[in-house]
């Protein structure tokens, strides 16, 4: 379709406004973290860095960050293993119920988070509770891993579709054992897909609040939960603002990493 010049400019303008819509709120948080006024009067009258040092010394925020990293790493690890296994099964085999399996993998993110959360909560209460296992960090990891599997699965599946089995067949023909083939042929082929999927899984877990609310035991506070708990406390607002600003700055990191390590196509699919 040959677009007229005005149409091109209209689209360009629209794109610009779209990007403004996406980025202005984020920039505002960054600016506000230096706002000297405790009540965040707008526009800001004076500037300060003291909220940043206050946040740095905030014990609650720090331990919440640590909990989030722990939960994220554990959930990512489980998701990497399970997601890769299902991707291989679905891509390399034809079997009865294959469509159902892919639907089952998508279900935890396709259903509203509150449903996943309350389902795990009630199951934990009525089954694990009877077994004497109470909710804690472990139940958070179980919940997160359940919806993280899909990110790894999709990335590995796409990679397997693209690469085909020729190289593996060649490896087997040349006498490599299945384990050697996996170690020297298959794994290097899917490595960057694993990285992209793992990054997404970690980000998904790091950011998750709804499922976490329902699966966290008492005393288990992830960073999103900490932010939410402090969001409505006016005297905590400056610190929350700085934590928010840090998270915005950090969000550039995985994108940069994915671009560096896996080329521009990596990470374009969040799920």
């Amino acid at each position: 379709m040959t677009l007229s010049l005005p149409a091109r400019w209209a689209l360009r303008l629209f794109m610009g406004f779209g990007l403004l819509f996406i980025y202005v709120p984020l920039m505002l948080v960054l600016v506000n973290s230096f706002n000297g006024d405790r009540t965040f009067a707008w526009p800001p009258h004076d500037w300060t860095t003291r909220w940043w040092s206050a946040a740095w010394e905030n014990e609650g925020a720090r331990s919440a960050l640590f909990t989030s990293v722990q939960a994220g790493l554990a959930a990512t690890g489980i998701a990497l293993v399970l997601g890769t296994m299902v991707a291989f099964a679905v891509q390399r085999f034809a079997f009865f119920g294959r469509d159902t399996v892919s639907l089952l993998i998508i279900l935890p993110i396709a259903l509203p988070g509150i449903v996943t959360g309350i389902a795990l909560d009630s199951a934990w209460r009525s089954v694990m509770g009877d077994l004497g296992v109470s909710k804690g960090l472990f139940s958070v990891v179980v919940g997160h891993a359940t919806f993280c599997v899909v990110t790894v699965y999709n990335n590995v599946l796409a990679r397997l579709r693209r690469t085909g089995t020729n190289l593996e067949d060649a490896s087997a023909d040349l006498g490599a054992s299945p384990f050697q083939t996996f170690r020297y042929v298959t794994f290097p082929m899917i490595r960057s897909a694993l990285l992209a999927g793992g990054l997404l899984a970690f980000a998904l877990s790091f950011d998750e609040i709804i499922v976490t609310t329902f699966t966290a035991g008492p005393g288990v506070t992830t960073l999103p939960i900490w932010i939410f708990n402090n969001l409505f406390r006016p005297n905590q607002a400056p610190v929350v603002n700085v934590v928010a600003a840090v998270l915005i700055v950090l969000s550039v990191l995985p994108v940069w990493l994915a671009q560096r390590l896996a080329g521009p196509s990596a990470g374009t699919s969040r799920t």
Partner: peptide, 29 residues
Amino acid sequence: LVIAILTPLWASYLVKAYAWRILLANGGP
């Protein structure tokens, strides 16, 4: 542009909602 659209996906859900709480606050921007 793809990167520009992707990057905010990594920013926390809560942070984005919080940004709008500031934007929409009484007497806010």
